[in-house]
């Protein structure tokens, strides 16, 4: 472009080389940061990468998986999607992708959820998404994201119209989630729920269990039964001490 001076042109070239973005994107970022290269990088990486994706490709992709007579991707579509990605539907990366898509329900994606999610991930093809799988799977290791994904999972896995999460579903989700980050009491917790509780799990119990895992050491030395823990967690602590799994100091 003849309007740009030599220095500016060099910056555009550097930006494009490092980020792989288009010239248009480079110009936008550099202008927003007043032509400071470092600022431009910050701007670029903090923005949703919508401009990198091709809307028509996304539409084609959505249409490939959606139901013929319903504007929604359902079980068959999700299954095909997983096959194309070469991913097991039970893989935790599917949970991460669903989280990006803000999916309201397991095994269902609306048009907005599917397209918006892929845009936020910054891909518009199966090939690109497959390339991203390792980094998507790695997101679960970030504490902040894990918490968001964990709490997202409750509503996502819940039956429509229900307030609570079915016990079997909850158990499966916990096994999946805590396989990624070791919690020594996960097996005791699942066994306790099946033996002593055998009912659905409330949202409050679900979210507070994560706090319990994060803040209470496996020997329960800092557990406060007069605190605000849900009663199910109180019962679990009682179960652990009764059965000698943990020696509670009084």
């Amino acid at each position: 472009m003849h309007k740009l001076g030599r220095g500016s042109r060099d910056k555009v070239q550097q930006f494009m080389t490092i980020t792989g973005a288009s010239e248009k994107v480079a110009l936008q970022a550099l202008k927003a940061s007043d032509w400071h290269l470092e600022g431009a990088f910050d701007f670029f990486y903090s923005q949703p990468q919508i401009s990198l994706t091709n809307s028509r490709h996304l539409e084609d992709l959505y249409n490939r998986y959606k139901e013929p007579d319903v504007d929604m991707i359902m079980v068959e579509g999700v299954s095909q999607f997983c096959t194309d990605l070469q991913v097991d539907p039970q893989d935790i990366v599917m949970l991460v992708i669903s989280w990006h898509m803000k999916a309201a329900t397991m095994c269902e994606f609306t048009r907005q959820e599917f397209i918006g999610g892929l845009q936020s991930i910054g891909v518009d093809s199966i090939e690109k998404l497959r390339e991203k799988l390792p980094s998507l799977r790695a997101e679960i290791k970030d504490d902040h994201k894990f918490r968001e994904i964990y709490n997202f999972a409750f509503a996502w896995a819940r039956e429509k119209g229900q307030k609570s999460l079915a016990l079997e579903t909850a158990l499966g989700m916990w096994q999946l989630l805590f396989a990624e980050r070791h919690w020594p009491l996960i097996d005791h917790w699942c066994q306790f729920l099946q033996v002593r509780h055998n009912k659905a799990i409330s949202r409050d119990t679900w979210s507070q269990l994560l706090e319990f895992v994060k803040t209470i050491d496996p020997q329960l030395s800092n557990y406060d039964e007069e605190g605000a823990w849900p009663y199910l967690i109180d019962e679990f602590v009682e179960y652990l001490t009764e059965n000698g799994f943990v020696q509670l100091r009084k």
């Binding site: 609570s164 949202r203 409050d204 119990t205 507070q208 605000a228």
Partner: peptide
């Protein structure tokens, strides 16, 4: 006290109460 805790949880699930997002206590 245990019954009170259960009632609090029930009120949370019926959306009369919620936990503070910063402090679960």
């Amino acid at each position: 006290i245990k019954i009170i805790k259960r009632r609090i949880e029930d009120l949370i699930s019926r959306e009369y109460l919620e936990r503070d997002s910063e402090n679960a206590q």
